[in-house]
């Protein structure tokens, strides 16, 4: 069982991350003009987190293939992942151009079998259980072959942390001591019927809950990719799974979308799209 690979905090170029995230947000806005609806705000919420996982945290082998796995548990955030996979050439440009169309490859939630997609998600509360199983499988296989243990990265919505199944998996992950599991909660404090802190105040505190369930846990600003990187790379491992409670803003990057529930699933109209491009931020933190 090997702990996480150590990286220096300056391994991750946050300026480059900021430029990448700007381009990825821009690409998602472009795709939004082909369809009547897509999950723009959930994608923008987890943008810096997923970018950091792919471009800072996940290790590659000599051939360039990822050794580690990313599982998007909050399936409705998959536009972020699709845009990244497109930028890597894992998905062809046509895949996003034909998003949600009759002959297209991609729908609004990720499907196992699509290049770069580790598991089918979309129904909330499934990802963490699968991630725990993956972490055990990787640990057992690596031990048998005498290889370093690959890490499973997963991003959960805060909404799905309300699912009982998530807490079953939380309990099992620490019981099994999978320190090759790194989870991030995209804690934008929004769900369909309002602010979670108002609708379900006892949902908080989160950090202490995960700690009480045996996870090493930190809270970070989820729009500061460098902070996410530093938090994950500084983890102790040592037999505990790692949870990052990432404080985020739903729709971050386009001011009029931020923390406004309608943008969970509405595509901007042409005028709104034009305005979005004008005000789209290079998110710093």
């Amino acid at each position: 069982m090997s702990a996480a690979p150590r990286r220096l905090a300056n391994d991750f170029d946050t300026t480059a991350a900021r430029e990448r995230c700007y381009r990825l947000r821009r690409r998602i806005l472009d795709v939004s003009q082909h369809v009547s609806a897509l999950h723009v705000a959930p994608a923008f919420s987890c943008m810096e987190i997923v970018d950091c996982i792919y471009h800072g945290l996940m290790r590659k082998d000599e051939s360039g293939a990822y050794l580690d796995t990313f599982l998007m548990s909050k399936g409705h955030g998959c536009m972020t992942q699709y845009a990244i996979l497109e930028s890597h050439g894992t998905l062809p440009r046509s895949a996003l151009d034909e998003y949600c169309t009759k002959d297209g490859l991609l729908g609004a939630h990720p499907d196992y079998g699509t290049p770069g997609i580790a598991a089918s998600t979309g129904s909330l509360g499934h990802g963490l259980g699968m991630a725990v199983g993956m972490a055990v499988a990787e640990r057992n296989a690596a031990k048998a072959k005498g290889r370093p243990v690959p890490t499973i990265y997963t991003v959960l919505s805060d909404g799905e942390v309300q699912e009982g199944s998530t807490w079953e998996a939380v309990m099992m992950a620490s019981t099994l001591g999978v320190d090759n599991l790194v989870a991030v909660v995209d804690n934008n404090d929004f769900q369909s019927l309002g602010r979670t802190s108002e609708t379900h105040p006892s949902f908080y505190p989160l950090v202490e809950k995960f700690q009480a369930f045996g996870w090493e846990t930190v809270e970070v600003n989820g729009h500061d990719a460098g902070a996410v990187f530093r938090a994950v790379t500084a983890r102790k491992g040592a037999g505990k799974p790692f949870m990052t409670v990432a404080k985020t803003v739903k729709g971050r990057g386009v001011k009029y979308m931020e923390s406004v529930p309608i943008w969970h699933y509405r595509a901007p109209n042409p005028a709104e799209y034009k305005q979005a491009l004008e005000i789209l931020e290079k998110v710093q933190s």
Partner: peptide, 19 residues
């Protein structure tokens, strides 16, 4: 334990990694 949803989820994860 008494946590059947995680039983199935963990099995899925194991199988996704070749078990």
């Amino acid at each position: 334990g008494v946590a059947e949803q995680s039983m199935i989820g963990i099995c899925a994860g194991l199988a996704l990694k070749g078990m």
